[in-house]
Design a protein around this nucleic acid. Sequence first.
RNA 1: GAGCCGCUAGCUCAGUCGGUAGAGCAUCACACUUUUAAUGUGAGGGCCCUGGGUUCGAUCCCCAGGCGGCUCACCA
Length: 490
Amino acid sequence: MEEKNLSDERQSRLNKLNLWKEKKINPYPNLYKPSSYSIDIKEKFEKEGDKEFPTDIAGRIILLRDFGKAIFATIKDSKGTIQIYARKDILGDEKFEDFKLLDIGDIIGARGDVFRTHKGEITILVKEFKLLAKSLLGLPEKWHGLTDVETRYRQRYLDLIVNDKVKEDFKTRFKIIAYIRNFLNNKGFLEVETPMMQTIPGGATAKPFITHHNALDIDLYLRIAPELFLKRLIVGGFEKVYELNRNFRNEGIDTRHNPEFTMLELYQAYADYNDMIAIFEELMQNLSLEIKGDTKLEYQDKILDFGKWEKIKYVDALKKYANIDVTNIKTIDQAREIASLKGFSDVKDFEGKWSIINRLFEEYVEPHLMEPTIIYEYPAEISPLAKYKEEDYEFVERFEAYVYGREIANAFSELNDPIVQAERFFEQAKKKAEGDEEAMYVDEDYLKALEVGMPPTGGMGIGIDRLVMFFINTNSIRDTILFPTLKTRD
RNA sequence: GAGCCGCUAGCUCAGUCGGUAGAGCAUCACACUUUUAAUGUGAGGGCCCUGGGUUCGAUCCCCAGGCGGCUCACCA
């Protein structure tokens, strides 16, 4: 037994738990199936002109008002809340005493007649009730709820119980994910699963998590992207595939980054980046119509139209927003010079011309891309898995979609020339050797797959968490992830 | 990784120019058969994040650390 003060809430609830047991009532019964939801009961009652009818519900007590011989309680279920009303003269002395043992936070089932109180509240007059789960810890305070951000993340269940907006936001997240799956399935894409644990972390440039398989005695990497495996499937004859699942990157945590995040990648054989643009625009437009009922959505201080995407070439965007004319930059040294003039003092030896220019792009162009914008035709040097333009090998058929200065999609015509891909991998390996921690690994088996032959293919990746951020109007990725990664507390 | 801010009752927050602390809600007791942030009266509840320093005395000042938030860097 815990030596606790009598007014300790948990102790008082434990005492009540024992009282239930002494009454031979199981405080955690096995099964109870309610027939109705709060909202539906209220709707039916109003629709039928306030005609009383018997019903039953189950849910959590979130408010209690005790009047001695009558008690009002507010019950919350998954759809909303409804008031119930218990009277001593109706329940009888013994059952009413039982009712008095209930606490805020307890989950109960109740049966009775729906009526409207003098104050106009649609209410269930309780004839029978059953404790379904005793709550020993109670709930955060009813006025201000739970606002402590750390507790909200660590005990998300409390956040979900108390903060309706949070629950709505997560419903929105999972509606978005369900919609995307539907959208792609209807287009004939097949959802597939490829390894989360990979021997070579490929498909992106990022630091991986490393783990170890004991029986095989080998290190494995949590995937940073599924890309190379999905393209192996295209080689294998699947023509439209997608994977919507987690990636893992061992990098910093902030309002835009969580170590595990959700990514959509899709690949379509006999398609190119223009087809990807078409799919992207259709998806964004339909998704916002589905979720918001409008292509325009309010985000922070802006109205963003997901039905209207401005398109501008990468080099033209540099000219337009940063006044940089790349035709004047012919050599790495010229690029270094401009970067230096613009204040970049930390250019590394392994950085090539376009890698340096891309710094300028990120610094001076991206912040201007507030309205939904598609930037296309990227430099080949910074796109090691994308296919060059037929008439200009310096550029690739690639686009990125930006909203509010943030990248939300990256797509290209996939590089299927094994010789060129081998060269690109070799360049990456060289950068790695020169100190670029995030350069790609050479994946020999992937090259072998390309040598078997991959059809011309278009592919696209969309960061789901960041997309969700726009739909729930938040600045923090943690508001889109149910259980964000946090340090442990001792 | 750097800077700034926060950490006080179960929750939301005050506060102590350095003398070991308060409110509302929650809890407990009593009253109350139509309340809905119910109300009224009374009560209990605190390693004031941790460790060290300064001091007669630290929750408060100083240093270090922990956890969290935001911004920046890296990235998606």
